[in-house]
């Protein structure tokens, strides 16, 4: 069953078209991630689903109901902002209960619901603090609490982890995944970080310049990217992509091979290059080769690969792992 349906959604600011004819279906209970470089329109698209931004044309359906013209608060959505947007003058308790208080619900009902929500997010001991007195992760959880208490049909997340440091970010990724499993709610999540997309999503939507490039599960996108853009965006280090004569020799417009799908050897292989730079990460070694035609080849070898800067070595693509585009 579908939860969110976008039909031919467009958005222009003056003569500038930032969202170009987007059609998308998000299933109930899915964790759907919009990913793309900055300026691709992912945040605008999310804000159009939330109702904070109006669409120039098209239709938005949430849970079977056409909400294209509905107010943000009438769409059955909740949103977690990049800055968390916690009201600085209110306590955690008042922040979480703000929506219910606006709706004029009885105080006892608000109190019970706030307590319950806070309990589930381990915020119970912080209820009387102001946001200023909280850590980054705690603020994040308050923002999530404010969303949960609305009991929304769809959760919207706008780059919620980008203000956190690396360690906390990976912890929050797990917490969000757990939360999704526990609530079973539909979540739409915007990020520019492909690691977040790969680790959290059931469904990834790759956006580029206001268009959908590809929709699919993380491994589908990894294994079968439909375009050089998707191929280059998903996976790290980036896929090696070649055009021109190299690609022509492979009978395609663009030829691609992931660094982890190149076998390095000192004795022989398809391409011979000179080692320019080596990154030893412990678990594996990333080697940058200079090649007269390909210019640069990036390869990833497992473990501590023995090689020195200036060495001449060979790189060999694994069969069946090569990508040929148009």
């Amino acid at each position: 069953m579908t939860s969110v349906v976008l039909k031919d959604i467009r958005k222009s600011f003056g003569s500038l078209e930032v969202i170009k004819a987007i059609d998308l279906e998000v299933e109930k209970g899915e964790f759907c991630v919009f990913v793309g470089p900055s300026g691709c329109g992912k945040s605008t698209l999310l804000r159009m689903i939330s109702g904070l931004e109006t669409s120039t044309s098209g239709q938005i359906v949430i849970d079977g109901e056409d909400v294209t013209h509905a107010e943000p608060s009438k769409r059955g959505i909740a949103m977690v902002f990049q800055s968390y947007a916690l009201y600085p003058h209110l306590t955690v308790r008042e922040n979480i209960g703000f929506g219910l208080s606006l709706a004029g619900r009885p105080k006892s009902e608000i109190a019970t619901k706030v307590e319950k929500t806070a309990e589930s997010l381990q915020l119970a001991h912080l209820l009387d603090r102001k946001p200023k007195a909280l850590s980054g992760g705690q603020r994040q959880r308050v923002a999530i609490g404010r969303a949960i208490i609305r009991n929304p049909k769809v959760f919207l997340f706008d780059e919620p982890l980008s203000n956190l440091d690396a360690a906390l970010r990976s912890q929050m990724r797990m917490e969000l995944t757990d939360l999704h499993a526990k609530l079973g709610a539909t979540m739409i999540y915007v990020t520019h970080d492909q690691v977040e997309a790969m680790t959290m999503a059931n469904k990834i939507v790759v956006l580029n310049a206001g268009r959908i490039e590809q929709v699919g599960s993380p491994m589908e996108l990894y294994n079968n990217p439909v375009s050089p853009f998707v191929a280059g965006f998903i996976g790290s280090p980036k896929m090696n992509l070649y055009e021109g004569e190299v690609a022509a020799a492979e009978r395609c417009g663009t030829y691609g091979i992931r660094p982890e799908h190149l076998i390095l050897s000192k004795s022989g292989g398809k391409w011979r290059g000179q080692v320019r730079h080596i990154e030893r990460l412990g678990a594996d070694t990333v080697v940058y080769l200079d090649h007269p035609e390909l210019k640069q080849i990036v390869a990833r070898a497992p473990g501590d690969f023995e090689v020195a800067s200036g060495d001449e070595i060979y790189a060999m693509p694994m069969s069946g792992k090569e990508h040929r585009f148009g």
Partner: peptide, 14 residues
Amino acid sequence: IPRDLDEAALIDGA
């Protein structure tokens, strides 16, 4: 004052 606050309140139904 960040505009996010207005938008959060808007979504909260203010």
